[in-house]
Amino acid sequence: MGAPKQPLTPLAMAILELLHERPMHPYEMTQIMRYRRVDYRVKLRPGSLYHTVERLDGQGLIEVVDTQRQGRRPERTVYGMTEHGRDVFTAQVHQMVATPADEYPEFPVALSALGELTPEEAVEQLKMRVMNLRARLAADQVVIEQVTADNLPPMYWIDYAYSHHQRKSELDFTQQLIEDLESGRMPWPDESGHHLAIVKDEKNDKTG
């Protein structure tokens, strides 16, 4: 039961974060994560959560502290965090906060391939993204207004505020990109120009 060989996954971090509050069984963890919208930033599936709990238990980061049974329901195992788990969790939080991670979101990949579409297709899909972003931002705002009305301390939903800010920035960028494409400020590459650039690069490689 040593330290994990690989950094803890986002789901593992979310589980350990919950267990800072009190011991819980996996079903309760799932319900609280969904209520708090943790599934907006962590892939949350019941099967993967149970598997992650078992792995954390095997690593000595959490341990069984109780079992519960209600009526005819199956027995539920309650887990608590170990001291080793607290140490590993704290060390990873330090690293994650201080060091920007290399992350690989889909949108930059799509933007790099945008020139392979027609200008009309590109603008149409970007406008669809704007609609989807506005819908997500509106849903965000409902949640933010609710937690504000409930006087929930901002530190408890700072991750949600960060995601909301990211979506606003992405919306601004996407709207500006659409304007630049429609106005011609960002010219669309033609096929011949694209191939000329490739030939030029190949020539430089041979003579460099």
Score class of each variant (00 low, 15 high):
49 L>K: 10
37 R>Q: 02
49 L>T: 11
23 P>H: 04
31 Q>L: 13
37 R>P: 00
28 E>T: 13
52 T>G: 12
41 R>A: 02
34 R>V: 06
33 M>L: 05
36 R>P: 04
25 H>R: 02
49 L>M: 12
36 R>A: 08
45 R>M: 15
35 Y>I: 11
24 M>S: 04
32 I>Y: 08
27 Y>K: 15
30 T>P: 01
23 P>M: 02
46 P>N: 13
45 R>A: 14
43 K>E: 05
51 H>D: 03
40 Y>H: 00
38 V>T: 12
52 T>E: 11
26 P>N: 09
48 S>H: 07
50 Y>F: 12
29 M>C: 14
41 R>C: 06
30 T>Q: 14
23 P>Q: 03
42 V>T: 10
43 K>W: 06
29 M>Q: 14
38 V>Y: 06
32 I>G: 02
33 M>I: 09
23 P>K: 02
36 R>Q: 11
37 R>F: 06
24 M>H: 10
52 T>A: 13
45 R>T: 15
41 R>V: 08
43 K>Q: 07
24 M>K: 07
52 T>I: 15
46 P>E: 11
35 Y>P: 06
35 Y>W: 11
48 S>P: 06
43 K>G: 03
46 P>K: 05
50 Y>K: 07
42 V>G: 07
29 M>N: 10
27 Y>M: 14
52 T>V: 14
35 Y>T: 14
42 V>P: 05
34 R>I: 07
49 L>P: 09
26 P>G: 08
38 V>L: 04
25 H>Y: 10
36 R>H: 08
26 P>Q: 08
25 H>I: 01
27 Y>V: 13
25 H>K: 06
44 L>Y: 01
40 Y>F: 00
28 E>W: 08
31 Q>F: 12
25 H>M: 04
44 L>G: 02
39 D>V: 01
34 R>M: 11
42 V>N: 08
31 Q>R: 14
47 G>T: 06
35 Y>R: 15
30 T>D: 15
32 I>R: 13
41 R>Y: 01
36 R>K: 12
36 R>Y: 07
31 Q>N: 12
27 Y>D: 15
52 T>L: 10
29 M>R: 02
33 M>G: 04
51 H>Y: 10
31 Q>V: 14
34 R>Q: 09
51 H>N: 09
47 G>Q: 05
44 L>M: 04
36 R>D: 09
34 R>S: 03
39 D>C: 00
44 L>V: 01
49 L>R: 07
31 Q>G: 09
46 P>C: 09
42 V>H: 06
